[in-house]
Amino acid sequence: MSTLRDEPLLCLEGVHTHIGQYHILHGVDFEVPRGQVTMLLGRNGAGKTTTLRTIMGLWPAREGRIRFDGQPIGGKGATLPTPEIARRGIAYVPESMGIFGDLSVKENLLLAARQARTVDDIDTTRLEWIFTLFPALKKFWLHPAGKLSGGQKQMLSVARAIVEPRQLLLIDEPSKGLAPAIIQNMIGAFRELKRTQTTILLVEQNFTMAKALGDTVAVMDDGRVVHRGPMAELAEDEALQHRLLGLSLAAHQ
């Protein structure tokens, strides 16, 4: 007999999203297994970011259903407010990173720690663990976040999402514009998060990262999911890569 723990952590069924007069998502269907990294791939404009924002309730799904941990959180007549979705254990790292440039690294993390009034209220063990993932954050603890490098800002944006335990991370193109060494640091951090049974839905254009991290993959095109399956199978099938993405992963190593 299957249990809730055997079910996907996140499930989208027939999700349609409109932004103003534009119909962006056209019946999106895919699942995110617990404790795994699911890659959401596709050409620019395919609907990946809209999918993440719809899951978070930032743009409501007009049709279909979104279930998280067995409970409805989105869909026609059922979309929860974004703060409530976050309280249920979902964190969103947007492509824009969402950090506060005038505040210090310390202040950014304190704002993200909902249960903490001062930095002393943050779990010390967890904070030290974050510093092992992203040592630069400890070094620049009191520096304004706006003065960090692009890679350090991305580290801070992820750290904000995990300063408290989360069941699911939605992360939008974390490697965009980063140097290869910083990308490798990100890959290591996400592997460590996966080791702690944190589930990740990751939008990414860097196929080295996708291949290194992905357990499963959903490929989008024109607001629909056109392929679902193991990431390893897509990574090994250049003909399928060309058909779905218009390029080869091997050309992006």
Rank of each mutant, 00 (worst) to 15 (best):
Y22W: 15
L52Y: 06
F100C: 06
H26T: 00
A212G: 06
V163Q: 13
Q154G: 11
T49H: 07
N108T: 12
A235P: 08
T49E: 05
K153S: 09
E236M: 04
G47K: 13
T54R: 02
L9I: 04
H16A: 09
H242E: 14
P144N: 13
L169V: 09
R191S: 11
R67A: 09
G214F: 00
A136Q: 10
S104Y: 02
F131E: 12
G20D: 07
R228W: 12
A181E: 15
I66K: 02
V217A: 11
H143Q: 05
D222N: 09
G70D: 06
P8G: 11
K76G: 05
L148Y: 08
Q205E: 02
N206C: 09
A113W: 03
V217K: 10
A239F: 02
Q152H: 10
S157K: 11
G151K: 14
L193Q: 10
Q205P: 03
A239G: 11
R117C: 06
Q21N: 15
V105A: 09
I200C: 02
L10H: 06
D215C: 13
D29E: 10
L4W: 03
K153E: 07
F131S: 14
C11P: 03
L170T: 04
L110C: 02
R43C: 08
D221F: 10
G64I: 01
D120T: 01
R195H: 13
E84G: 05
L178K: 08
Q197N: 15
P180T: 07
L240T: 01
G14T: 01
A161M: 02
M209P: 04
I122W: 02
L148R: 01
E173G: 12
T125M: 09
A113P: 00
A189N: 04
N44P: 01
A46K: 10
K139P: 10
F30D: 04
I85E: 11
M155E: 09
H18G: 04
I183N: 09
T208S: 08
P72H: 00
K139M: 13
L40K: 02
T199P: 02
Q197G: 12
S2Y: 15
I130K: 04
P33Q: 13
I130A: 08
L234T: 15
A181Q: 14
L178Y: 06
D123H: 07
I85Q: 11
M231W: 00
H252T: 10
F190E: 04
Q154V: 08
L247G: 14
Y22P: 06
L103S: 06
G45W: 05
F140Q: 11
L40Q: 02
T82Q: 05
E238S: 12
A218R: 13
G229H: 10
L10Q: 05
K138N: 07
L4M: 08
A61L: 04
V203F: 08
F100P: 02
P144H: 08
L202H: 10
Q205R: 04
P230W: 06
K153Q: 15
F30A: 01
A181W: 07
G75A: 10
R34D: 08
K153I: 08
K139R: 15
R195C: 02
H242Y: 08
R243L: 03
H143E: 04
L127Y: 09
F131I: 08
R117V: 00
L41N: 09
W129G: 07
G57D: 02
P33K: 13
F190V: 03
A113C: 05
G77R: 14
L170Q: 05
L193P: 14
P180V: 11
M186A: 03
I73G: 01
Q184V: 11
